[in-house]
């Protein structure tokens, strides 16, 4: 900012980075905000809620696994379009997606969340936590809804959300990375772009810190998902083995 070296070039690079990641995000976000806006009045009726609640546990688990798997395909496409991701070795691409794809889904969920009604877009309409009762994971569902609500309260723009999603996905502290330094460089670059966009959008000073705090909440949600899946698999090994999407099983070790 003092004009000594090449801040203009850096700013231009950061702007470019922001544009690229925002474009990748918008191309792969599954639903546009306008589409979600148009569907925002569509809430499940009481008899529809009861119909979900009366599904056998394994049927509801399978339905949610299918929905998560659909969303994951979009996250994989997002990752592929992040500048530098495909230059990482294949091991590290897999490691980052295995560890980060569900975290990105939870981040993206705030776009599909209605804070006023405490509902999320699921299976064609907006659903409250009670819709997921048959899963037998009320505590996890409640935490996921709380997380979405707290993300919503930050009122992130699409470019901020895009950069934060990329930052989460490019976490350099994941176990089993082979070229940690390469991932670190990409994550640092993404963090700079995130800082840049927050400044440009004149956001409050503490927002980056608040976002960094969300990272540990995301990790906790994902490890709890893994625990719930293990518990479910212990009771229904055949259902997981034969009826769950193969991609879901690959990612979550089911």
């Amino acid at each position: 900012s003092n004009g000594d070296t090449s801040p203009t070039v850096s700013m231009a690079e950061l702007d470019h980075q922001v544009q690229l990641i925002s474009k990748s995000h918008l191309e792969t976000c599954q639903y546009l905000r306008e589409e979600l806006q148009q569907m925002s009045w569509q809430n499940f009726l009481q008899d529809e809620v009861e119909s979900y609640q009366s599904k056998p546990r394994e049927v509801m688990w399978q339905l949610c696994a299918v929905k998560i798997t659909e969303a994951i395909q979009y996250v994989v496409e997002f990752a592929k379009r992040i500048d530098g991701f495909m230059d990482l070795c294949q091991n590290d691409q897999i490691v980052l997606l295995k560890a980060g794809s569900l975290e990105v889904i939870f981040v993206r969920m705030c776009r599909m969340f209605d804070s006023q009604n405490n509902t999320v877009f699921f299976d064609g309409k907006f659903a409250g936590p009670d819709v997921f009762r048959a899963l037998g994971c009320d505590d996890l569902i409640s935490s996921v809804f709380d997380f979405a609500k707290s993300m919503c309260s930050l009122h992130l723009s699409e470019d901020e959300l895009a950069l934060f999603s990329a930052f989460v996905l490019l976490s350099a502290d994941r176990s089993w990375l082979q070229e940690k330094l390469q991932v670190e460089k990409l994550q640092q670059k993404t963090q700079l772009a995130l800082q840049h966009v927050l400044q440009k959008n004149q956001r409050e000073d503490g927002l980056l810190h608040k976002l960094r705090c969300k990272v540990s909440a995301l990790r906790s949600l994902c490890s709890r998902h893994t625990e719930k899946l293990s518990a479910f698999r212990a009771v229904y090994p055949d259902i997981v083995g034969t009826h769950f999407p193969p991609l879901y099983k690959e990612l979550f070790g089911a």
């Binding site: 395909q73 294949q90 295995k98 690959e250």
Partner: peptide, 20 residues
């Protein structure tokens, strides 16, 4: 690679009409 066959396919395809 065999363990993450679908993920490999998704990463390699330019678009991903993989049958899941």
């Amino acid at each position: 690679k065999e363990k993450h066959k679908i993920l490999h396919q998704l990463l390699q395809n330019s678009t991903s009409p993989v049958d899941l």
